[in-house]
Amino acid sequence: MLNQRLTAILQLVNTKHQIAVTELAAVLNVSVVTIRKDLTTLEQQGLLRRQHGWAVQDAPDDLNARLAINYAIKVKIAMVTADRVADGATIMLDSGSTCVLLADQLGEQQKNVTIVTNSYYIAHRVGDYPTLTVEVLGGQYQPVAQVGVGPLTLHMLTAFHVHQLFVGTDGFDPQSGFSGRNLARNQVIQAMARQADTVTLLTDSSKFQGPSLIQQFPLDQVDAVVTDQDLPSAIATMLRGALDLQLV
């Protein structure tokens, strides 16, 4: 996990989209040399870019940029969710940023798990963990999100059946449920759900501020939600009446 200063840098970069090294040093009361070392650490993890004296957020749909937003919270969600996955299990993961961190946790905990995913990012990121086996779905490649989508992906999914699917989301509405912002990726997520016994949604509480563009799942199609303690109490009460809610 990132230390407090690295987390603060990420929050500042994500808020401002770009920020000067000198401003970071002043705000955090450390030297420019220290900030440069911190930025190198964050850049090596793919959480931001360095550019001529600036720290810069990646494009909004870039998975590294999405990982950086509320990173510490997402790591906590991933750590707790890893306990839901039994050794020897076969699971499905979509391309959500918290799903990426869940794959990390499963590898770090040395669980023998097979992961079925359309995320080439996940496949590349966890490929060196000896206890993880990754089955990658083919399809039309979306280079920014690093995922496969389209008819071939949907067809390949029919060859698999798993007990657990873990997915992310982009928005929420009490009436319509969970929603996403990309039609092709949403279609794959919905097809994944048809091949899984249970659907567990992993997201930080910021996604409960309003709906996104395209409906993903109504509440009755989601079995569990793992999110953080900042979830509004009214939404928490509603979710507890409909599914398994875990707050971290």
Rank of each mutant, 00 (worst) to 15 (best):
L102Y: 01
Q57I: 02
A184M: 12
D170Q: 14
K74D: 08
Q109I: 02
P174C: 11
I69S: 14
G53C: 10
D128C: 11
H161G: 05
G148K: 01
G127Q: 06
L102P: 06
N64P: 07
G53A: 08
V80K: 15
S176C: 09
K74V: 08
G171W: 02
V75L: 13
G150S: 11
D58S: 12
A68G: 13
S95A: 15
F172E: 09
V80C: 05
G150I: 10
S97N: 04
Q146T: 08
T153I: 04
A89M: 02
A103K: 02
A72Y: 04
G171D: 03
L137K: 00
T114P: 00
K76G: 06
G127R: 11
L165S: 07
D128Q: 15
N118T: 01
P130N: 06
M156R: 13
K111R: 15
Y141V: 14
A65S: 15
A86Q: 13
T158Q: 15
E135H: 15
G53F: 10
I115P: 07
S95I: 01
V113G: 00
G88Q: 10
G180W: 05
I115W: 12
S119C: 02
Y71V: 07
Q110M: 14
F166S: 07
I69C: 11
K111I: 00
A68H: 07
V136S: 09
